[in-house]
């Protein structure tokens, strides 16, 4: 596809999305909001998993850190929820740096298992009301509605524009990051860490930096989630969430922003469309994933010039 066609397509998609709430009911808009949140999370994970090739299946932990930071600051200290955005990002990012530092040198599958562990530790800590501030299994409720210039964001349509505005900003920033020095360093890391180090690139630094950045984004998405739900509990941040995010990135095409968006629509949106077949949902889900990995391992919408990465990376991860 020509670059100009890409932009026309992206513009049409954005315009369609922008007017969508006018034609949809509250439930449907709410589904779009969920898709937006997952897209935001998956875009952050895409930096770690897609761009840098680091296997992270504990992304929900960083999401939880952000959501709980926002919720605690808001309910205990009455800090307006949207003001907590940067702090949630910082807390989640700092947490990621702390846990990633000792394990980030691990290869593929080993790192994957460690991140699963981290995700579970965070969830269980939340359930057990760690430090007496997370509200245990019940979670935290009574989070204030966000307020923008005196306007209270309450209806699904309001959240729609808040969330998708954040998605648009994220895409704008990440597209630039991708083609910058920092973004290239992540790709060098994914392609061959030894060669990257042998070209003068501090690979440990970039591994940590991308973990911190991806986690900070998850933390900020957590703030939006807390604001949207007004009540959060540990069950929203289960292992399954991490798996779904991992799937969105691999299914869409690791390292591909349009791929991640498309997969977010499919993975989050389709189950809602087929609610009546809820019983068979997981069966279909599993079958689709299997067929995809066999037939189209590079993802639905692979990044240019990166064909076959996902298969290669998966093979590396499960291989000896």
């Amino acid at each position: 596809m020509k670059p100009r066609l890409d932009w026309i397509g992206a513009g049409l998609f954005a315009a369609l999305l922008a007017v969508a709430p006018l034609f949809l009911n509250a439930y449907q808009v709410d589904v779009l909001n969920s898709i937006g949140l997952y897209a935001l999370l998956a875009l952050g994970l895409n930096l770690i998993l897609g761009e840098a090739g680091l296997f992270n299946m504990g992304h929900a932990a960083f999401y939880a850190m952000g959501a709980y930071t926002a919720a605690i600051l808001n309910t205990r200290y009455q800090i307006p929820i949207l003001w907590t955005l940067p702090l949630s990002g910082l807390v989640a990012g700092a947490f990621a740096l702390a846990v990633a530092r000792p394990v980030v040198h691990l290869r593929g599958d080993y790192l994957l298992i460690v991140t699963i562990g981290v995700g579970e530790i965070v969830r269980i800590a939340l359930v057990n009301d760690v430090f007496g501030i997370t509200g245990g299994a019940n979670g935290i409720f009574g989070i204030n509605r966000p307020r923008v210039f005196g306007y209270i964001i309450r209806r699904p349509e309001d959240f729609f524009y808040l969330i998708w505005g954040c998605v648009a900003l994220t895409i704008f920033l990440f597209l630039r990051l991708k083609r910058s020095r920092f973004g290239r360093a992540l790709n060098y890391l994914r392609e061959d860490a030894t060669a990257a180090e042998g070209s003068g690139i501090n690979t440990d630094y970039y591994k940590l930096a991308v973990f911190g950045l991806g986690a900070a984004w998850a933390g900020m998405a957590g703030t939006l989630f807390a604001a949207k739900m007004t009540i959060i509990s540990p069950e929203s941040f289960s292992f399954w969430e991490s798996v779904v995010l991992f799937m969105i990135v691999i299914l869409g095409g690791a390292g591909s922003i349009p791929g991640v968006l498309l997969a977010a629509f499919l993975v989050v949106g389709l189950p809602e469309l087929f609610r009546e077949f809820a019983g068979a949902r997981m069966l279909v889900f599993g079958l689709v994933m299997m067929v995809m990995m066999v037939v189209r391992p590079q993802g639905l919408w692979p990044a240019r010039g990166h064909q076959g990465f996902s298969l290669a990376a998966l093979a590396r991860a499960v291989g000896p």
Binding site: L173, R176, F182, R184, Y188, E191, A195, A209, H306
Partner: peptide, 29 residues
């Protein structure tokens, strides 16, 4: 040991990396 999936130019740019400046913020903005 090349970066197989990247372009020739991107491969050569890896060598320039450490003499360049710019991190996350400079790249995003």
């Amino acid at each position: 040991r090349l970066f197989q999936q990247l372009t020739v130019l991107e491969n050569a740019l890896a060598g320039c990396h450490y003499r360049m400046s710019g991190g996350i913020l400079a790249g995003m903005l």
